[in-house]
Design a protein around this nucleic acid. Structure first.
Lengths: 222, 222
DNA sequence: TCACTTGTTGAAACTCAGTGTCACTCGATA
DNA sequence: TATCGAGTGACACTGAGTTTCAACAAGTGA
């Protein structure tokens, strides 16, 4: 075992772990090494972080809590609240650029950690779904809208986050905002706009002439 | 170690493994027990299935292959092809009701296997995304449509599959079809319908009178 | 028939993640 | 001072997964 004093002064075991994994290699780093690096006993390490994989995503425990309390108290309409929660998570990463980028690079080399990331990000998806199920109006397809929207929102977030991680100089927050807004529009094409403006959709035979089409619209508008 | 001769005649190690896990408990079953049950040496077991977790989802290797070759050869428009692929996966489960239900019950008790399921089903999502990215028309948001649609499709599939697993007597295939169709509609409100019928969407001030609205539509159709 | 390859299998030893147990410490409270 | 509880460390133990090596096919060519 190699005694190594990583900068513990930051008091961020996750960052220290990522640093050690990156420098020494994930497989080559034993939990003993890791415990040394974060100045904890092996026992305490497992008690605090659960596993060698989970340290790498330790920040998400807290973040998920924040997301859940945000959802519980947000005044926004459900779908918008989920979007805002997604932006919360995105900002969390942007605010810690250095660790986020380091973790991203590490994941590139370690499949096991990519799997763990998947599991981690799925916890957000479940939180979103649970929230939407409880908050959306009780239409017939509420369940499926909740499931599909949550999943798509998380997927969009992840895709844009990954793009940002490849080029952290860019500000992709507006991009995320725009894509999530588009998602809301796709899932609630009528409800959310109906307050300000009416929507009319006419399906017609493209062969028909203009006046015939207009006449049937006139009748529909009654 | 307990020597136990599970019905190996079916030649389905996955089913045998699920059976043993269910009867003896996942944690209580060692890989040695497992290897015995499927009439393989420990070494060969790992070579063939990779891990104790992965045996439980061994069928997905083949299924994912089928899905990928289906996508590569399907004549349907991209989004519909993904829907069809999703139905392929659904049917696979329905066709093997007994194993599927047994696995579902097992997952209920074993968190580690639920995580593994997540990872497994994500492989479909990636396959869908890759396919859509390559097949959709090169619009600006092709990437995000691919990501969001794939993810939502998989999520819908999983939700409906889970409902079916709770009550396998019901035929939920039409439900899946309908929900996936709705998803396509949400993501491609115009493109996919344009071939057979025109679509007209008019946004108007609900205070405006009928003729004013019709006049602006007339001009748009001009 | 005999080498020689190539791929599959089993046996066995080894590493190390993760668990469980027990004793210790420290701070708070009675 | 005695006690209680929570957090910690030391240590032993289990078992998953890896690696190595030998045995054994089943071709393949001479």
């Amino acid at each position: 075992m190699i005694t190594e004093t990583v900068d513990v002064s930051t008091n961020d075991p996750m960052a220290a772990a990522i640093e050690v994994f990156t420098r020494r290699g994930y497989d080559a780093t034993t939990v003993d090494d890791l415990a040394d690096a974060v100045a904890l006993s092996r026992s305490t390490f497992f008690r605090r972080f659960g596993s060698k994989e989970e340290v790498v995503f330790a920040d998400h425990d807290l973040l998920l809590d924040q997301v859940e309390t945000y959802l519980a108290t947000s005044p926004l309409p459900p779908l918008e609240a989920v979007c805002a929660a997604g932006r919360l998570v995105f900002d969390h990463h942007v605010d810690r650029r250095e660790v986020s980028v380091a973790r991203f690079a590490l994941l590139h080399d370690v499949p096991a950690l990519r799997d763990r990331e998947l599991i981690t990000s799925h916890r957000y998806e479940r939180a979103f779904t649970r929230y939407l199920r409880a908050s959306l109006a009780a239409t017939a397809d509420r369940e499926y809208v909740s499931v599909a929207f949550s999943s798509a929102a998380v997927a969009l977030h992840n895709a844009i986050l990954r793009r940002w991680l490849l080029a952290p100089a860019a500000d992709l927050a507006p991009e995320l905002r725009a894509q999530l807004r588009a998602l809301v529009r796709a899932f609630a094409p009528t409800r959310d706009q109906r307050r300000r403006e009416g929507v009319l959709v006419a399906v017609f035979d493209p062969e028909a002439d203009r006046e015939t089409i207009l006449e049937s619209i006139r009748q529909s508008l009654g």
